[in-house]
Design a protein around this nucleic acid. Sequence first.
DNA 1: GGAGAAATTAACCCGTTGGATAAATACTGT
DNA 2: ACAGTATTTATCCAACGGGTTAATTTCTCC
Lengths: 235, 235
Amino acid sequence: MAKAKRTLKWQRDPEGMRLRILEAAKQEFSAHGLAGARVDRIAAKAGANKRMLYYHVGNKDELYLAVLEGAYDKIRSEERGLDLEHLDPPEAIRRLIEFTWNYFLRNPEFLSLLQTENLARAKHLKKSTKVKSMHSPFVEMIRTVVRRGVDSGDFQVAVDPVQLYISIAGLCFFYLSNSATLSVIFGRDLLDKKAKDERLAHMVGLVLAALTGQSVALFEIAKAPKSRSVVAQTV
Amino acid sequence: MAKAKRTLKWQRDPEGMRLRILEAAKQEFSAHGLAGARVDRIAAKAGANKRMLYYHVGNKDELYLAVLEGAYDKIRSEERGLDLEHLDPPEAIRRLIEFTWNYFLRNPEFLSLLQTENLARAKHLKKSTKVKSMHSPFVEMIRTVVRRGVDSGDFQVAVDPVQLYISIAGLCFFYLSNSATLSVIFGRDLLDKKAKDERLAHMVGLVLAALTGQSVALFEIAKAPKSRSVVAQTV
DNA sequence: GGAGAAATTAACCCGTTGGATAAATACTGT
DNA sequence: ACAGTATTTATCCAACGGGTTAATTTCTCC
């Protein structure tokens, strides 16, 4: 009895608990999708009781939306730190591609969450008020880079910044989010180090070549078919 | 009573039933994912009893795999009909992009199925023996186009055909499969006619400009920000 | 016109799952 | 130290969902 402070059956830690719940939920939702996610597994992974989820966040859907909003929040805030304004345009685009690629590599759950939400035709995201506001600054950032590139003569065309971003994200996203099926159907491991390096080079080359009109060295990593010698590395 | 052929409670039609089941399953799986799909709904949509699914195809997972294989089968067989061999290389690439784009537009369930399967890290697809075999011809077709383009001087670089195809598919796929969330966060409808036309132009322009080094007219549909007059349509 | 096989239906089984209820435990101010 | 509140636990349950069993209807072939 009389221990100065006897060991507690549990400690209170509302904020910590909330974070652990959201982290556990992120893992569960990205691993199994919305319908496949199990509330009990989330609770277990968070070291909590199932009832806690409802107490701290809400029901399964609210939990899911909270996770989704958190995911967008995180990537957009990291992107703000890129400040592409101070780089010359081609270098800015290169950095944007590399950042996007590496972010997707480092945060595979983000990709899964996006897939899940699109499968649901953004039903939940539409309810979110927070998310909509945080994207226009990002678009303007890209628009500025493109305009500067056109003015300086580095870029051939004034491309729509939204199209450009969707293309960049798409080149990264599809490769990574679909690497499982692509690896199967093409019979090669798309996630080993060499393959990833080649992919990054390919994407940077593709986009910069299109924008600048000049062939980019890294783009030319072309695998010759086994029977042939190396194909000409033309101009 | 005694009508020469009294009305039947039901007709027999094994093959028809199997097709209806697979079609219903395709819709259900693409609309709700694997875990979200409901066996009863599939049965209802197929105008069948739940027991029929198990009788004609198998359990939920087998049903899903059958749908997935059918989907791959369909797109790959349509692709075979493209015969890019008889077009000059830039035109062949353009046609490949347009086909992929239109196929994805016409078959949104295919996109959903791929997303679902990748969410599951291709767990089911790996079990399929059929699917693996049908992709090398397609890759070789693209490889030939690229090689011809390099030889003729149309293309600047000998790009890896698998990378190229993943890029083309990715540009189309991401835009369409993620159009729901993208529309929300960018605040514009990406699926109206004008947006789709612009996207196709953008993709063709991007890829062909990168391959040929020449700016493609269609690529230059650049939306100026509302406050500004039209940005220079450079070179 | 009947026997056996094939196709289809109806009803049930039972583990799972999201969510709810109520009690127990820790914290806070006074 | 005590009342009131916030946080956490322990159970429970009704609905659901995949899958199975067994009976019913149609077809085929002799």
